[in-house]
Design a protein around this nucleic acid. Structure first.
Lengths: 114, 114
DNA sequence: CTCATTACAACGTCAGACGTAGTAAAAATT
DNA sequence: AATTTTTACTACGTCTGACGTTGTAATGAG
């Protein structure tokens, strides 16, 4: 709907937050998450698959997600990802950080030369 | 005041926005801007000088700012930066993008598994 | 039988943030 | 008078992470 596309440099800071948020609702896998993100953003942001999968491996190294192979009846094997307790913690932290970012940027934009 | 520090990956998307915003209030130079940013963020974000100066050169290449040498009576020579009309335009665009980002991230965080 | 869709993996490139160090002049401190 | 701190940058290198391109493998649709 919106004609404003959000730049990668802006979204860069929120990739992890978005992935962790989706996993809060239950285990998922790459392809599904990329569809979810595209849908929820009304196409204003398309998370590239390479971006997504590299984020998964980064998050797994950090212990925030855990992967396991999922054999679906009919369909190719998928790698599912689950949120760990540390991942939940990190998600909450990221939400707080998002709040702080909103405060900070709003402060910069709104101030009418103090 | 806030104990939450905002990560570089988050701020990465807003460096240009912040610089352009400061220049809206009048010409300025690197050192002054870095102080302004630290002050206004209550120390939650410290823009590194290398980050700032490389942003300046990027913004100048894009035609969003214009630099000129400023000889101050007493004190070392400074390079001042001024906003161009294109820079003003770009600033407004970045504000819209910021609005779109707020909408999108809020949507992700708040949804209670519709 | 071919093509699209699903579901990835393995490269490589490139921008940009940051660490470190160095330079230079003025102001402040000793 | 000599040293340190603050101001005001510049240069160089590293590293993370987003993205482009390509390839692969399986299923389903036409």
């Amino acid at each position: 709907m919106g004609d404003i596309t959000i730049s990668s440099d802006v979204m860069r800071g929120y990739i992890d937050l978005i992935i962790l948020r989706v996993l809060c609702d239950g285990d998922s896998y790459g392809y599904a998450i990329s569809k979810t993100v595209t849908d929820l953003s009304d196409g204003r942001y398309i998370m590239k698959e390479t971006t997504l999968y590299s984020a998964f491996s980064r998050l797994e190294k950090l212990g925030y997600v855990r992967s396991y192979p999922g054999s679906v009846s009919g369909g190719r094997e998928r790698t599912y990802y689950a949120l760990t307790p540390e991942g939940s913690q990190h998600y909450l932290y990221k939400c707080d950080e998002w709040g702080a970012t909103q405060d900070l940027i709003s402060k910069f934009i709104k101030r009418e030369d103090d």
